[in-house]
Write a protein that binds this DNA or RNA. Structure first.
Length: 298
DNA sequence: AAAAGCCCCTGGACGC
DNA sequence: TGCGTCCAGGGGCTTT
């Protein structure tokens, strides 16, 4: 499911519900997701106040009073829904953010429920269970193996052409995989990499090293790519992220970035670039589908 | 040290 | 209707 724009959308929706609230109790319904839940999670969360909710890469980070971070990764199918405690199922509750048009979550996959002193409950649902939950002292987070080697935030000033060129230097790996690497840029995923490369006019098969070097062309490519990444992420956040599969409305009246995809899922269809006349193709890099126009992406 | 596979898991779409 | 196959927004781990 979630790349940076979707996680950010969830964060924004959840922030108002969580900030300043006390966790009254926690219902943990299985032992693990991708990883085991932290030991004594319910006991360690109950009675604690949430100070704020931030995002790093594709992680949601809830800072708890007392100096711990509750960290949630949504994996591929994780979704978070907030509802009144009186509602005893997910029938009428719509998940946050990108699931505005999605079908309600199947309650069989509600794995964690966090009850708040506001009378609301936060439900974590994840059919494939690729997501996970961590709990650790805030001060240790950036040293944690999952965080210590994360690359820069793509929407931060640290992500610029100079950074990208420097990280790309000498790398034979193709641009698709280079941008998918969370150690380089943190938060891009399979959709937005294809979309960004299209907007930058760069082939996913191009060597990353072609973004580096003193040549004016290399500098220009890096600049185009940085701009394209920032633009597509910002637009997607504005649209409330993307919803794939299961959404029912053919044309969403209140947005949904899936309607703005230029290449993702469009193989066989004409390139949307003015006057290009090319056709979008689907290829595979490391087992993940890549969509691009073979004519205008070089 | 970097890169390519494999794996985790469920469910929907599609072909027969 | 049923069954097999493929595919899906993630990333860690093992092997090369």
């Amino acid at each position: 499911m979630p790349e940076l724009p979707e996680v950010e959308t969830v964060r924004r929706g959840l922030e108002l519900e969580l900030t300043g609230r006390l966790i009254t109790s926690v219902d943990q319904r299985r032992a693990d997701l991708r990883f085991p839940f932290p030991d004594e999670l319910s006991k360690r969360l109950s009675g604690r106040k949430v100070l704020d909710l931030t995002r790093r890469a594709k992680y949601l980070v809830a800072a708890l009073e007392g100096g711990d971070d509750l960290i949630v990764h949504l994996g591929m199918t994780g979704r978070i829904t907030v509802m009144d405690q009186a509602i005893n199922n997910t029938e009428r509750a719509m998940p946050l953010g990108q699931y505005a048009y999605d079908v309600p979550a199947d309650a069989r996959h509600d794995h964690l429920v966090v009850y708040l002193d506001s009378g609301r409950k936060v439900v974590y649902n994840d059919p494939r269970r690729f997501g996970f939950v961590l709990l650790m002292p805030s001060a240790e987070r950036d040293q944690h193996p999952l965080f210590s080697s994360l690359g820069v935030e793509p929407l931060s000033d640290a992500f610029d052409a100079a950074y990208l060129s420097q990280r790309a230097s000498g790398k034979i790996v193709n641009l698709k995989q280079f941008l998918m690497d969370q150690k380089i840029v943190a938060g891009l995923g399979n959709i937005y990499v294809s979309e960004a490369l299209f907007r930058a006019g760069l082939s996913p098969n191009r060597h990353a090293s072609s973004l580096s070097g003193a040549r004016g062309q290399a500098v220009q490519r890096a600049e185009r790519l940085v701009s394209a990444v920032k633009d597509v992420l910002a637009l997607a956040i504005c649209a409330g992220g993307s919803t794939l599969r299961d959404y029912r409305h053919a044309d969403g009246s209140s947005g949904g970035f899936q309607n703005e995809f230029q290449v993702y899922g469009r193989d066989g269809l004409p390139c949307l670039r003015n006057g290009c006349g090319g056709v979008i193709t689907r290829t595979v890099h490391s087992g993940r589908a890549t969509f691009a126009c073979s004519k205008c992406q070089r």
